[in-house]
Amino acid sequence: MSKDAAADVSVALPHSPDLEELARLSQLVRWHIVNTVAQSKAGHIGGPMSMTDLLVALYFAELRIDPANPLDPARDRFVLSKGHSAIGLYGVLALRGYFPVDELATFDRGNSRLQGHPDMKLTPGIDVSTGSLGQGLSAAVGIALAARKQQSDHRTWVVLGDGELQEGMVWEAVNSASRYELSNLIAIVDLNGLQQFGWPADASRDRFDRSDPWAHVNLRGVFEGFGWNVLDADGHDFSSILEAYSAASDNVVRTSRPTVILARTVKGHGLSFTQGTYKWHNGVATDEQLQIARNELQIEETNR
C-alpha cells in the first residue's frame, strides 16, 4: 500500500461492519503503532496493540460519530482511560478521518497535537484527557450522568486496562455508575493479563511470561456484585467483539445497569516479537524488527 493509499483509507472507509475490512484496518493500526513509536524512539507497544481490534471495531462499526463534526453534542463519547495506549487510539482516529494519517509522524515530537497521553484540548476526537491511570471511568460517569439529565441518548464508552483496575478510583466510579443506574455507560476492559512489570511467574496461574494481575480474583463476579451487566468477548475476534458491542447497546435501553465487556486479549497482539510478553510494554523496534512487522502485517515497502 502506498503512502497515499494509506491516507485515502480514512476517506474510503465509512462505518462498516465488514470483518475482513476491519481486520485489514487493524493491521494498518498496528503498523502505525510499531512504526510511529520506532520513529519517535519512545512509546508504548503492548497495550496499544492488545486494544487495537477493540478500538477498530468500535470506531468503524459501533460508535455514532462524525469525524467531520468531532464536537457534535449528540455523538457517542469515548474515553481511553488507559491513556498510555494513546498511539493506538491516534492510529484509529487518523484512519477514521479525524486528522491526517501523516500527522502520526509528529507523535511525541514536540509542538504536536499528538501528546504522549490523550489531550482533549489539542486533538480532534479526544473527549477526555487521560494519562494518570484510573480516572477515565469517573469522568465517563459524569458524562453519562449529564446525558441522563439532559435527556440525550448518546452512549459513553470507556476502555480500561486490567492493570489500571488496581487503582482504587476505578471502583469508586464502578459503584457510582451502578448507584445512578447508568445503562448508557459501557466499559471495556482490555484483559491482556500483563502490565509493565507486575508479578513473577506462578506455575499454576500464569498468563504469558508474568502472572496475571487478577489471577486470584473473579472479575466477573466483582462487577456483577457491583450491579453491572457483564459480557465476555474474545478481544481479537471481530465477530465476538461486535456481538458484545451489540449486546451492550441493547443493554442501554433494556436494562438500568451499566455494562462491562471483559475482553480477553493478548498484550502486543499481532506481531510475533511483541505478543505475549511484558517486555514490549514499551519498546522501540529495530530496522530488522520493522521489516518483520511489515511482512507480518502485510504493509508494502512504500508505506512510511
Binding site: 473527549d127 477526555v128 480516572q135 471511568l137 469517573s138 469522568a139 465517563a140 460517569v141 459524569g142 458524562i143 453519562a144 450522568l145 449529564a146 446525558a147 439529565k149 439532559q150 440525550s152 482504587g168 478510583m169 469508586e172 466510579a173 459503584n175 457510582s176 448507584r179
Partner: peptide, 19 residues
Amino acid sequence: VGIAEQNMVGIAFGLSTAG
C-alpha cells in the same frame, strides 16, 4: 457521590463537559 473524593472530581469534570 458519597465518600469518594477522587470520583467526585472525575464526575464533576464529566458533567462540565456537557455544559
